[in-house]
Amino acid sequence: MSTTAKQQAQKGAGRKLLSSGRGAVSLAVLVILLGLALAVNFGLVGFDPIAQTPSDRLLAPNSTYWFGTDQFGRDIFSRVMSGVGSSSLISVVAVTIAAVFGTLIGLFGGFYRGLIDLFGTGVTNVLFAFPPLLLALTLASVLDRNWFTVAVAIGVVYIPIFARVTRGPVLSLREIEFVRAARSTGMNSIGIMFRHVLPNISSIAIIQIALSLSWAVLTEAALSFLGLGSPPPAPSLGSMIYEARTLVLIAPWTLYAPGAIIVTFVVALNLLGDSIRDILDPRSREVSS
C-alpha cells in the first residue's frame, strides 16, 4: 500500500519536472549533450578524441571538423563531447560518494547521538573548515592521478554538506510517533533507521544531489584547468580551455567551443537542480520562481 503511494508520488514528481518549462528544457539539453558524448565514445560521430592529424592543425570549424581542430590536429568537437562524458562520470561518482558517506554520517549521528554524533559533527566541522576548491585540489595533488581519485577528491569536499542537511531532520524524526511506535514493537535500531528514518530524509538528499552536480562539474573543470584533473591526453573541458589561452589569438574556436559547452552544461544542471528543488521542497516554491 505505502509503496504504491510512494511510486505514485515519484511518478507525479517526474511528470511535474517535465511539465515545468525549465525542467523539461534543461533535461532535453542534458540528454542531447550526454547522447553526443556517448556517440563520440562509441565512434558513431566525430573522430577519435586523442588521434592527432598533423596536416589538419588549427583548422577553423568546417563540415568535417564541426568545431575546428587544435594545435595537434585533433577534432575539437569529439574532444569537447568526450570531455562532457568524462566530466559527467567524475561528477556523478563524486556526488555519489558525498551523498552516501554524508547521509550515513548524518543518519547515524542524528539517530544515535552521543559519541557517534560528536565524532560525526567533528569530522563535518573539520571538512567544512577548508575552502571547498582548496580542499579538492590539495586532495587531488596527494592522490595518485586518475579519474577515480579526482572523483574522490571532489566527493570528500561535499560530504559535510550532506551530513549537515540530513542530521537535523533525523534528530527530529527520531522523536516522532511512528518511529517511537516502531521502537516499541521491538524493531532494532538499524531496521528503524533504514526502514523509517531514511525514506523520510530521501527528498532532502535528492535535492542536495541535484544541487551538487553542477558544482562537481565546475570543480572538475577547475582542477583540470590547474593541471590536477585526469592526466593528459584524456580530453577534459578545463584543460582544453587552459591550452586555448595561448591559441586564442590565432584560433579563437579552441576557446569558444569548450567554453560555450561547459557553460551550457552547467546552466542546464543548475536549472535542473532548481526545478527538482522546487518540486520536492514546498517551502522554496513561493520564494523562488
Binding site: 553542477s214 565546475l218 573543470a221 577547475a222 584547468f225 578545463g238 580551455i241 587552459y242 586555448a244 589561452r245 586564442v248 576557446l255 567554453g259 561547459i262 557553460v263 552547467v266 546552466v267 543548475n270
Partner: peptide
C-alpha cells in the same frame, strides 16, 4: 550565469 560560468573561463 554567475553560478554557471567557471571563474577560470571568465578570467581567461
Amino acid at each position: 550565469l554567475g553560478l554557471s560560468i567557471p571563474a577560470f573561463l571568465l578570467a581567461t
